[in-house]
C-alpha cells in the first residue's frame, strides 16, 4: 500500500521535529497501542512507555534520511509496539502471546535492532553525562544540545569572558569523552 501524501507530510514534520505533526501521529496511534498493551498483561503506564519508544524508533528512522515508508504509519507503529512489548514481557518472564492475527504486521526487526543499538548508546551517553557532575553537565548541555553561543553561556554561568568559558568547556568535554569512550569501547568489545 502506498503511503498517502498527508502521511508523507506527517513524517516530514516528524523529521523536522514539528510539534503539530508529532501531536497528530500521537493522537492517531496511541489508543491502538494502549489497547494492545492492556489486552496483553500491560498497564497504561506500560502502554505510554512502549508507544513513546515506538515513536522514537519512527523519529530516528525518519531523521536518518534513509526512511522509505512502504506501509501506513499505523501498521508500522503497531508492529514496532507489538515487538517491543513482547520483548519487554520476555524480559519480565511474563510472556504471553498476543492473540491478535499477524495480518497487519510488517517486519521491523532491523529497525528494532538499530533502535536498540541507539538505545545502548543513548544510555551510555546519559550515564556519562550524569557522571560528569556540575557545572560541566550544564555547560556542555548548553553548548552542544541547546547550541547556545559562548558569550551567552559565559554570561549565564558567571564566567568573566567567553575564553574562560571555552577553557572550562574544553576541560569538561575532555572528561566526558574519556568517560564515554571508556564505556563505548567496553560496550563494543562485549558485542
Amino acid at each position: 500500500m502506498k503511503p498517502q501524501t498527508d502521511e508523507k507530510a506527517l513524517l516530514e514534520g516528524l523529521a523536522n521535529n514539528d510539534k503539530k505533526a508529532v501531536e497528530t501521529i500521537y493522537k492517531d496511534n496511541f489508543n491502538m497501542v494502549q489497547s494492545l498493551i492492556i489486552n496483553n498483561n500491560g498497564s497504561s503506564d506500560d502502554a505510554k512507555d512502549i508507544f513513546q519508544e515506538t515513536i522514537i524508533v519512527l523519529y530516528e528512522k525518519v531523521r536518518s534520511g534513509t526512511f522509505e515508508l512502504n506501509c501506513q504509519i499505523k501498521t508500522f507503529v503497531y508492529s514496532v509496539s507489538r515487538r517491543l512489548w513482547l520483548k519487554r514481557l520476555q524480559q519480565q518472564n511474563r510472556y504471553s502471546s498476543p492473540g491478535d492475527s499477524m495480518e497487519n504486521v510488517v517486519a521491523v526487526d532491523e529497525d528494532i535492532e538499530a533502535h536498540e543499538q541507539r538505545n545502548t548508546e543513548f544510555e551510555m551517553m546519559e550515564k556519562a553525562i550524569n557522571n560528569l557532575g556540575e557545572p560541566c553537565k550544564s555547560l556542555l548541555e548548553a553548548y552542544y544540545l541547546q547550541k547556545l553561543n559562548m558569550q551567552v553561556i559565559a554570561a549565564n554561568f558567571g564566567y568573566t569572558n567567553a575564553d574562560n568559558a571555552k577553557n572550562q568547556k574544553y576541560k569538561c568535554l575532555m572528561r566526558l569523552k574519556k568517560i564515554f569512550f571508556a564505556h563505548y569501547k567496553n560496550g563494543n568489545s562485549d558485542e
Partner: peptide, 13 residues
C-alpha cells in the same frame, strides 16, 4: 554524533 543523538532524543522524549 552520539552527543547529538542523545540531545535530539532527549528533547524529543
Amino acid at each position: 554524533q552520539q552527543l547529538n543523538h542523545y540531545g535530539e532524543r532527549k528533547s524529543f522524549k
